[in-house]
Amino acid sequence: MSATARKTAPMPADIKARKGGVPLVSLTAYTTPMAQMMDAHCDFVLVGDSVGMVLHGLPSTLEVTMEMMILHGRAVARGLSRSMMVIDMPFGSYEQSSQQAFESAATLMRETGAGAVKLEGGQHMAPTIDFLVKRGIPVMAHIGLTPQSINTLGGYTVQGRGAQGDIMMEDARAVAAAGAFAVVLEKVPQGLADRITAEVEIPTIGIGASAGCDGQILVVDDMLGLFTAFKAKFVKRYAELGQTGEDAIASYAEEVRARRFPGPEHVFADAAPKGGTRA
């Protein structure tokens, strides 16, 4: 993304200032063409570690590496001029120490041009968030269902019911106090999401949370019907491109086997047409 284009994109402070205003719109992106499609419509675009499952066929996000995030981050950056890019910090790149987190975050931002990083965790990650923010790394927090912790959470289950709700409220307060400019709430009960949204001073970004959040995010391949391995309750399919694509491939295969493709309009004549064209 050019320096001129970057000036038009929101900054983390702009996203934070949208608290309580018109809802923020976000989607994930992993490739340049997809980023180009959403650039005019999203306030920020997340290069999510969900890329491991969606594009690489991995069983979870735990095997995603820094190299994968940098590769896809660079691709997304080429497709954005109006949206801010946020990039996920992959599992194992920030949990060991605040210094490790800084080195990883600085590498991701330097190598991709991202405007901010996102990391998972509540109260226990607040000191790390504080460390990063004080050193110039804008941080988007992520609480509730944190996919990098599925082995300790017991799977992709709803978080924050019953007594867990008070703990999650403290998580939200802690990451806000530490300096995060926004917080993702994933797969939490609607009432709890509304409480957090009302009580913390930073925007809440819902995914399986509440329409009352300050913004929403979905995995783009989920909402377009491209990723069909499973469908979460909170996903609304705005298209079924996966089925459309499969039907198109089936038609192509049928035409090739029947020698209907390529047709006369898809092949070249033995002699070039008059006029010097290359048709």
Rank of each mutant, 00 (worst) to 15 (best):
P147R: 07
P147Q: 08
S149V: 01
N151Y: 12
T152H: 12
T152C: 10
T157R: 09
T157D: 01
T157K: 04
Q159T: 02
Q159A: 05
G162H: 03
A163T: 08
G165M: 12
D166L: 10
E170M: 08
A174R: 05
A174F: 04
V175N: 02
A178P: 07
A178Q: 03
G179C: 09
E186R: 01
E186L: 00
E186N: 01
E186K: 00
L192I: 05
A193C: 13
A193S: 15
D194R: 05
D194W: 04
R195W: 03
I196C: 06
E201S: 14
I202E: 03
T204N: 02
T204Q: 00
G208E: 09
S210P: 12
A211I: 09
G212A: 11
C213V: 13
D221F: 09
M223I: 09
L224E: 01
L226S: 02
F227W: 09
F227G: 10
T228N: 10
F230C: 10
K231N: 12
K231Q: 13
K231R: 15
K231M: 09
A232G: 08
R237Q: 15
Y238F: 01
A239H: 13
L241D: 11
G242Q: 11
S251F: 09
Y252M: 10
A258N: 13
R259E: 10
R260E: 12
R260Y: 05
P262T: 01
